[in-house]
Write a protein that binds this DNA or RNA. Structure first.
Lengths: 166, 166
DNA sequence: GAATATAAGTCAACATGGCTGACGTAAAAT
DNA sequence: ATTTTACGTCAGCCATGTTGACTTATATTC
């Protein structure tokens, strides 16, 4: 009799636990992006611009195809936002040394400043969460998120320094 | 001298750590939604439909305004997807008992089946991550994600049973 | 009971950011 | 010399968010 409850509830609790995780991801991501979205709107930019600025800042001298591989969107979609950012002086393109077909991307000073503003907000949110949750929780968070991800390549990239080299 | 390295690296490591978290959220969310998105496309639906189906399944008998509060979109945006789901027989609406202005939402059998398919994929992904990461990591993940969220109301809702009552 | 407020819906127009398909140009690789 | 690669462009489509204006039915308040 003592184990009736735990046996009967095990699948239910498990289901409940898994649904909680789904909702944590939904609400967490929604709130994580809300404030940067609002800042971007003041420049006439959207979330897509943020992603480009973020990853170019993270991996200076990366090529367009590197960026496409990270974002997993078509070059036409990328082109729309990237060309705006270049035209408005947030990102600079320069031909590669070894391979002059490649156009290496980097943030301008203006781009660095915008990137800083945008991700400062997100870094602070994370920093607060890390403070509140504790060191051990942070390690758990990292483990679970890494495991939710599909791609080994992305897992590796997260661990590496962001110098755009391959 | 022994503390030069740790002192000098502390802010750098911290910055690095925070950026890793940003990327974990980006890659994790991207991969978490990719497969359901592909399934939905076969019905001519998108991610917005998934959200509606998910939360109506989670909180049967919820009202339209309850749903709007969770999704934080305009009623015009919701209307587009919700009316499709009702018309195609995935969701049923019925007038509230106490307040007949309200239209209480619930999944039909067809809706339950679609919801099951979609979130089964996500539940399995989470279950795998939880298995790989361990019990302690799961608790850490929950703590960090809860803390990343902005709204106390949402935190409470995650903990509650989903019966749509308030 | 009349006035007001709330829940829900609708129409119209617009922006963002995905997508496909077709085509062009420059540079590298074969 | 030919083919492949990296990048870009034009055109058009779709999903999903927005604002603003207006309607209908029902509850609530004065």
């Amino acid at each position: 009799m003592a184990d009736v409850k735990s046996t009967a509830n095990a699948p239910f609790l498990r289901e409940e636990e898994l649904r909680q995780a789904i909702e944590l991801l939904y609400y967490g991501y929604r709130d994580f992006t809300a404030e940067p979205d609002a800042m971007l709107a003041r420049y006439g930019f959207g979330r897509a611009h943020h992603r480009v600025i973020y990853f170019v800042g993270r991996h200076p001298q990366m090529s367009v195809s590197d960026l496409l591989a990270i974002l997993r969107i078509t070059k036409q979609s990328l082109s729309r936002v990237l060309s705006q950012l270049v035209r408005q002086g947030f990102i600079r393109q320069s031909p590669g040394n070894h391979d002059r077909r490649r156009r290496l991307l980097e943030l301008t000073d203006k781009g660095i400043e915008l990137e800083r503003q945008l991700s400062e907000n997100q870094r602070q949110r994370i920093a607060r969460a890390y403070r509140e949750a504790g060191v051990q929780a942070v390690e758990g968070f990292r483990k679970v998120m890494l495991s939710i991800m599909s791609s080994d390549e992305d897992r590796k990239r997260i661990g590496r320094r962001g110098d755009g080299s391959r």
